[in-house]
């Protein structure tokens, strides 16, 4: 099975072309001189220049980043706690309800989550703004975090925690000194997932934001409804670039760590 059959080669080529050509076109036309996005009129970076001077976009980007940082951090803490409770909490009153509330938001349509949170915020008279978006984003992304972290916790060797207790740790110390450092990669990827979900979210943010706080997706959505614009192309290119660099770096780092660990294990096995 070292060589691809022509069928597999064709399906992979077509499949990845389908996945990537739209984004490549978008990136190419972000460097278009013309205001008319569909006609190529020469290379230019002027739309990036305009983007930097567009106060509204910059404000929205700043709001988005703050919301994402706060909500993903809060979601990581709450989601990790929830995962720990689900995997290690044993039985407690209302456990089924609890796990239901963890999994339900994952399949809940965003329009419903947004609507219900908005009705809550109005009901208790909370002014809508950055704070309410953070609350909303924390609630749905903590569920994603807890799924990621609990799948790691399930495979976690419990005797490591018992060893920590045996050597004199209190349960809290055992968690801080042993469990947390070992599940840290899962917690970090949970945070990254929560961060990305918050950055991307349009629907829930539209429901829960007020006039004082507009996030980037809301801004992009209202601009895009009017049609394709080179400025949005430039903005999209920047966002794609950030994500691409992030994902490639992360996968290289984890791949290198895995390769090194394997080599060291083999070396250790040979040494005996």
């Amino acid at each position: 099975m070292n060589r691809l059959s022509w069928f597999n080669a064709v399906s992979l080529t077509l499949g990845f072309a389908f996945l990537y050509i739209p984004m490549i076109i978008l990136i190419i036309f972000s460097f278009n001189e013309s205001k008319l996005v569909t006609v190529w009129a020469g290379f230019s970076t002027k739309w990036y220049g305009e983007l930097i001077h567009n106060e509204a976009f910059l404000d929205a980007a700043w709001v988005t980043v703050r919301v994402a940082v706060f909500s993903s951090t809060l979601a990581t803490i709450l989601g990790t706690m929830a995962a720990y409770v689900l995997v290690r909490g044993g039985r407690f009153f209302g456990r089924t309800l609890f796990s239901g509330m963890i999994y339900a938001p994952l399949v809940m349509p965003e329009v419903i989550t947004g609507l219900s949170l908005l009705l809550l915020f109005i009901g208790i008279g909370l002014d809508r703004g950055i704070f309410t978006i953070v609350l909303a984003h924390t609630t749905f992304s903590m569920c994603y975090v807890s799924v990621v972290v609990s799948s790691r916790l399930i495979t976690f060797d419990r005797s490591l925690e018992e060893a920590a207790l045996d050597l004199g740790c209190s349960p809290a110390q055992a968690f801080r000194l042993v469990t947390l450092p070992i599940i840290a990669p899962a917690v970090i990827s949970g945070w990254l997932l929560a961060f990305t979900l918050s950055l991307d979210d349009l629907v829930i943010a539209s429901f829960t934001s007020g006039p004082s706080a507009t996030t980037l997706p809301i801004k992009i959505f209202s601009a895009v409804r009017l049609g394709v614009s080179p400025e949005i192309n430039a903005l999209s290119t920047l966002m794609i670039a950030v994500v691409t660099i992030g994902v490639i770096t992360a996968s290289l780092v984890t791949k290198r760590a895995a390769v090194r660990q394997k080599q060291e294990e083999q070396a250790a096995a040979r040494a005996t």
Partner: peptide, 23 residues
Amino acid sequence: MLVILPFWTSFLIRVYAWMGILS
């Protein structure tokens, strides 16, 4: 990684990319 990459990219941008193609 090539399959996961679009998943991390903004949903909105990926839908938007088709507006320019299909108009």
